[in-house]
Design a protein around this nucleic acid. Structure first.
Length: 415
RNA sequence: GGAGACGUGGCCGAGUGGUCGAAGGCGGUUGACUCGAAAUCAACUGAGCAGCUUGCUGUUCCUAGAGUUCAAAUCUCUACGUCUCCGCCA
């Protein structure tokens, strides 16, 4: 959520942000509701001040009808509640501002490439798609996934399941031991308010799985519980930045992506991800974003997977993010780079929604923290990248050297 | 799921209708003492909103919501949560 004072004071500027995000909304609606709100507050506070004076001292001489005042206050209070709810509901649907370093553009084709790492391997044979490698190896079973659940679910077996687990441990070890993140195991289900805090609700309910009987939702990413860990609190500046990492499954309904990536493990309703979250001061958040992105990139580099970094443009960037770097890994079968991590600085957008503040070291008023999140990285897609990039002509798959210790010394997956 | 107890500031804890944004303690900040630290002493130390002379005034907040009352942290109801005992259970 944005500061309403910012919107009112910079209406033209923010209208431009909305335009660049392809977001259609008339900000005069906000201005009008806010002036109604102020008017009601003015009247009600005058009445309350009179009432308080009257009830505090018996000798108050001013003319005051407590009965009439009470009725009017009640009326105004409920009007105010209505206006504030309406205003809040609008505010919760407005997207974040953009960083000055976020490029203006229409869609993913306008995302500039920041850098590229590694050289895609030259194949002496036609590289296969991961499903054509994994199924014969018996390490992925797509039909069983559909049988047990529905499409976009997959069963990993044998060395497939083993490598998935190895990747989780490998990533968590790197982030905790080398990059200084605190490992967390959060709930995989959360309340509505938690999803409002990070911005998935109220706008994107159709992307989420909901447990109707208990009013809980399955998390679409560990960003949700991790970022909310310190909600509604005032941290001390000396305790910042906070670094959290967690492995969790992620659950997404993938509404609106019918027909995209229908084969294989690329787009699943349930997938594993190691996530990184940072809570820091406004002064440091853009440095922290660079570091966070590098932390994710190091996973790919250590596994020897070629990738590139793109800077998401205004038309492609997420609702709550001011700046996002996507890491895209090379997939030989598709002959292109595909998203495997997304690292965002949400500035104070989420912090406002969840009332996450810190007290500056100089003792001033509490200020909203900045929050960042990034995949560190998507485990299923990493499995795809390894299978495709490390495939051999005979249908076997080599295990990346860095992963061998996590696989009991196994260096190659064969039939 | 059944029975009981309880939810007060960063934490602990007093407060059972107005004098309470809330005693006291811990913690924190600053100052004094000290070569320095500790100890000791002193002062300060919650948040939101509105207004304007930007430092003050007003207002709201004692889990949340509703109610009683001229007046609610305090009384009533509901919800949620925590704890204890019992049941069930990985």
């Amino acid at each position: 959520m944005l500061d309403i004072k910012y919107i009112l004071a910079n209406q033209a500027e923010y209208a431009e942000v909305l335009k660049n995000r392809h977001f259609d909304f008339d900000l005069n609606v906000i201005a009008e509701l806010d002036s109604r709100r102020r008017k009601i507050i003015g009247e009600t506070e005058t009445l309350k001040a009179m009432r308080n004076r009257k009830s505090k001292s018996a000798d108050a001489t001013e003319e005051f009808d407590p009965k009439a005042a009470k009725a009017r206050i009640k009326e105004l209070d409920s009007e105010l509640a209505e206006v504030e709810k309406e205003l809040h509901d609008y505010m919760m649907t407005l997207p974040n501002k953009l960083s000055s370093t976020t490029p203006i553009g229409n869609d993913e084709n306008d995302n500039p490439v920041v850098r590229t790492w590694g050289t895609p391997r030259e194949f002496t044979f036609e590289p296969k798609a991961h499903w054509d490698i994994a199924e014969p190896l018996g390490i992925m079973d797509f039909e069983k996934g559909v049988m047990l659940a529905q499409s976009r679910f997959t069963v990993l077996k044998g060395m497939g399941a083993r490598m998935e687990r190895a990747l989780v441990n490998f990533m968590l070890d790197m982030h905790t031991k080398k990059h200084g993140y605190l490992e967390v195991e959060p709930p995989f289900m959360v309340r509505s308010a938690i999803l409002e805090g990070t911005g998935q609700l109220p706008k994107f309910a159709e992307d989420l799985y909901r447990l109707q009987n208990d009013d809980l939702w399955l998390i679409p990413t560990a960003e949700v519980p991790l970022t909310n860990l310190n909600r509604e609190s005032i941290l001390e500046e000396k305790d910042l930045p906070l670094y959290y990492t967690a492995y969790t499954p992620c659950f997404r309904r993938e509404a609106g992506s019918a027909g995209r990536d229908v084969r294989g493990l690329m787009r699943q309703h349930q997938f594993d991800k190691v996530e990184m979250v940072k809570i820091c001061t406004p002064e440091t958040s853009y440095d922290e974003l660079e570091k966070l992105t590098n932390n994710a990139a190091e996973v790919l580099e250590t596994l020897g997977l070629p990738y590139r970094v793109v800077n998401l443009c205004s038309g492609d960037i997420g609702f709550g993010s001011a700046k996002t770097y996507d890491l895209e890994v090379w997939l030989p079968s598709q002959n292109k780079y595909r998203e495997i991590s997304s690292c965002s600085n949400c500035e104070d957008f989420q912090a406002r929604r969840m009332s996450l503040r810190y007290r500056p070291a100089d003792g001033g008023r509490p200020v909203f923290a900045h929050t960042l999140n990034g995949s560190g990285i998507a485990v299923g897609r990493t499995l795809i990248a390894i299978i495709e990039n490390y495939q051999n002509e005979d249908g076997s798959v080599n295990v990346p050297e860095a992963l061998v210790p996590y696989m009991d010394g196994i260096t190659r997956i064969t039939r």
